[in-house]
């Protein structure tokens, strides 16, 4: 069903764009974090996480995303979530993630965000 987790990333306009597919649990969260540390450099101050193909998350996986938010905030950067399933949007809202991260309807919108 949704047990496999895949992640692809690219650099666009000095932003790191990561797209997930599958369940963001502890393994998925860890893979996202590892990719972030691997690709993040001083030229990148925005990270876009496209969750279009993720329909399930758990709070352990999200704790890894909080780490990314923390690291970006320390360097004046920002995490932008795109293409959120309504249930994931609600989950992030309950946790207060949008106090420290942004959301956009599409990658294009996220790329143009200040």
């Amino acid at each position: 069903m949704i047990s496999d987790f895949n992640l692809i990333s690219e650099i666009k306009n000095n932003s790191l764009v990561m797209a997930t597919e599958g369940y963001i649990n502890n393994n998925g969260g860890q893979k996202i974090t590892e990719e972030f540390y691997d690709k993040k450099n001083d030229d990148i101050n925005k990270v876009i996480l496209n969750l279009e193909k993720t329909k399930v998350v758990n709070s352990i996986g999200i704790s890894f995303l909080i780490e990314i938010i923390e690291k970006l905030n320390e360097s004046g950067g920002k995490l932008v979530f795109t293409n959120l399933d309504p249930s994931i949007d609600k989950t992030f809202t309950i946790m207060g993630l949008f106090h420290f991260a942004k959301k956009a309807d599409s990658i294009e919108e996220a790329l143009t965000m200040e």
Binding site: S59, I62, F64, E67, E70, I94, M95, L97, F100
Partner: peptide, 24 residues
Amino acid sequence: EPAIEEKINAENKRGWGLKLMKSM
């Protein structure tokens, strides 16, 4: 109850399960 303001910069970022279940 966890608060995002406290979890940012904290070593332990977990502990959200009960809050999510209550809220959703």
